[in-house]
């Protein structure tokens, strides 16, 4: 019920704002995010790209980076990723950030 209400409010706000950046991040499923990050991002990060883990950055830095994902250098690599999945990934990175209670590496 609560989840629905949030999504609904979110949708409403978005429609009202009608901005180009399409998603408000936060409150996703961090457990699933850990898997999705492994699946969609670890193919490069940790191999051909920087070894990004939640603990690489602070919560504020993650929030800033995800404010406009179209500006991320690899954005076109994962264009097809649903916003919901990206939000789960953000939640994982953010909730286990360097300054979170439980900073996490990827392994």
């Amino acid at each position: 019920m609560k989840r629905k209400a949030i999504i609904f409010t979110g949708a409403l706000l978005l429609t009202l704002a009608a901005v180009s950046m399409a998603f408000a991040f936060g409150g996703g499923n961090g457990r699933k995010g850990k898997f999705l990050y492994r699946k969609s991002c670890r193919s490069c990060h940790g191999k051909t790209a920087s070894d990004l883990s939640p603990a690489t950055k602070t919560q504020a830095e993650w929030t800033a980076l995800f404010k406009d994902v179209s500006k991320l250098p690899c954005n076109k690599e994962w264009q097809g990723l649903p916003d919901k999945d990206l939000n789960d990934i953000f939640t994982y990175l953010h909730d286990y950030a360097k300054d979170s209670p439980t900073p996490a590496k990827c392994s």
């Binding site: 699933k32 850990k34 898997f35 492994r38």
Partner: peptide
């Protein structure tokens, strides 16, 4: 629950 959750979502897929 972090790694086990990851394993759960992985095996679901």
């Amino acid at each position: 629950g972090a790694r086990s959750g990851e394993a759960y979502y992985m095996i679901r897929e």
